[in-house]
Design a protein around this nucleic acid. Structure first.
Lengths: 343, 343
DNA sequence: TATCGGGGCTTAAACGGTTAAGGCACTAAG
DNA sequence: CTTAGTGCCTTAACCGTTTAAGCCCCGATA
């Protein structure tokens, strides 16, 4: 049998109430008694039972991380581990625990999710990489728990945090234009996700602003494979494309390998720019120019937002939508096009 | 306020005990009453509070997944997401929830771990990618909870599951030898982990069995970067190496990129074989020959083992060590060496 | 001296379930 | 007509905490 508060109380020769007061709100107890209690706690190695504590306080100190991604992309993309790192850091520091809920693992995800919420297994929820029109958001909202969304979100009364995808992609395209490129291709991500749509829009805006054609586009799905196909398609369509912007680094990776296979040197014959700045991008033979998004920071801030609200309990905090800026990181995969260089 | 068992009892005009009996052990209640109770449950959308239930039953239905990896490797390696997939599948199916505990996220990991255990937040623990000599194992064992280890483990009274690393690496080397290679290099993983040591031994055994030199070795750390360095080192040492075996696919990836940079074509001038069979390996321009380890299956079986024991409660189950076989997957990155092909 | 105030502890009632034990009504057996 | 047995439900104790309310004692005040 485990050590309970009664064992401590007996050893310290006080009631369980006193022990509890010492442990929670210690200035109500005399110094002498408090020390005796703390000694007993130490002596027995007492730790309060989280369930009993939670039952009376109506809190679990658990936070759910929900990834309702239908695709495998969460798993092949290093996005997820990075995010987890940021979330895990703050959650651990604040004395919370992380309950992981992966859609891909479950036959009936929505029932598992609602079970988790209505059984009160968590105090709050972090929602990441939700596809557009996902009913998961509705469901979580219905659970009446505080929750924070990481990624695009168009609901006004919801706390969310995201990077500026549109602006990021705009900067990427702008960078290529400033290098002198005029025929620029684009390989999209999975357009069922809003981030992919937003990035595509940023690309488009930059090109149209300069009066360039933004029609060299391949619809991909965020995998390296779609990058390979995209590169093949764009290069072989033979419209003199000298640069390809990509919706993600993984896509850019695929683009680069195929470009090389087709005899194009990067960046001499073809400039490639990615989006994300995953660590792999710095380990490829041609270091990828990309748009850095602070993924783990995103996770950190989301947990911070959620935990702050959990601490307040009743006091309402006004819903916020935080947008984190991205950053252009110039490495080796982009250069002026050969005709410009020649001049 | 939430709906409790009393609300259901009131609506169904029975005592809370009856409701509980219906929900748990329904053949003790008359059909008529049972139906009325079930109707009330449905009507109110009642879900039992997990904390209250856990308190009296002394179980949480939470399982901890502990990754005490110090290195970043868990995050850059796709091993982790795959594992999660396997674990998540069974855990969800059995009505458990997954509590994630990542070392890299925590300042004081061991205190977080012991808190989690002694506060009784979980019923059991799955331990993955534990480095050799990690005190985490001791700590978990001290918690007196059932736990299962994924990966190498030399303790006899512990449940563990692993792949046959030694045999896998042996097969990889054997494959190269059978193709006709005689000068074979090896890039190791992070040798602080036993899996890396075991794989290295398998490689060594195969070569020594054939009377070949097993001294062309580069000590890596499981990253693509160390693969790049390893390739450079092995090729430039100029001992006529025609093939390189790698401790992991990520390493093999690095080896291939550098080999190509140095003007070696894969597999014409250099054969490369990996280990893991991660999905990226099939998306590279030269599809990687590798040793497949069923990572997600490993996770699945580990959870299966743990959950089976949780269901038994008191009845002891004899500790087992399961070893899963690996499989050679021949793709495009290996071929006979040019001198042999020439004949 | 009686009253009051307050510090410092304890008592006991929650929290929301489970489950052993008991009670009640009815039927079958002696 | 009692007794025993059985099916079905309820009562109440319990799990391990927290916390409002109460009690006791002591010193200060009137």
């Amino acid at each position: 049998m485990r050590i309970t508060i009664s064992d401590v109380a007996a050893l310290a020769k006080v009631s369980t109430a006193t022990v509890s007061y010492v442990l929670n709100d210690s200035n109500r107890v005399s110094k002498k008694t408090r020390e005796r209690v703390l000694w007993a706690v130490e002596e027995l190695g007492y730790q309060p039972n989280a369930l009993a504590q939670g039952l009376v306080k109506d809190q679990t100190r658990n936070i759910a991380l929900v990834i309702p991604d239908t695709a495998e992309s969460v798993f092949s993309d290093p996005f997820f581990p990075e995010l987890l790192k940021g979330i895990g850091t703050l959650v651990a520091r604040e004395g919370y625990f992380l309950l992981l809920s992966l859609m891909s693992a479950a036959e009936d995800f929505s029932s598992i999710l609602s079970t988790m919420i209505s059984q009160r297994r968590v105090d709050g929820v972090i929602l990441a990489s939700t596809p557009r029109d996902s009913e998961v958001v509705t469901q979580v909202r219905h659970g009446k728990l505080p929750f924070t969304i990481i990624g695009p979100c168009f609901l006004s009364d919801v706390h969310s945090i995201d990077i500026d995808n549109e602006e990021g992609a705009y900067r990427a395209a702008k960078h290529l234009i400033e290098l002198g490129h005029r025929q620029i291709g684009y390989v999209t991500g999975d357009m069922r996700f809003d981030y992919a749509v937003q990035r595509y829009r940023g690309f488009q805006r930059a090109l149209e602003q300069e009066g360039l054609s933004s029609s060299h586009v391949y619809m991909g799905d965020a995998t390296p494979l779609s990058g390979q196909r995209g590169a093949k398609y764009l290069i072989e369509s033979d419209q003199g494309i000298t640069a390809i912007a990509c919706a993600s680094d993984m896509v850019a990776y695929g683009v680069m390998t195929t470009a090389r296979d087709l005899g194009y040197r990067v960046p001499a014959d073809l400039s490639v720019i990615g989006f994300d700045d995953i660590s792999l991008a710095q380990q490829s033979e041609v270091k990828l120019t990309t748009i850095r998004q602070p993924i783990s920071r995103l996770g950190y801030l989301a947990s911070e937002n959620l935990i702050a609200r959990l601490k307040q309990r009743n006091k309402k905090i006004e819903p916020t939508r935080q947008i984190i800026e991205t950053e252009l990181v110039v490495r080796d995969s982009t250069a002026p096009p050969s005709n410009v260089r020649g001049d």
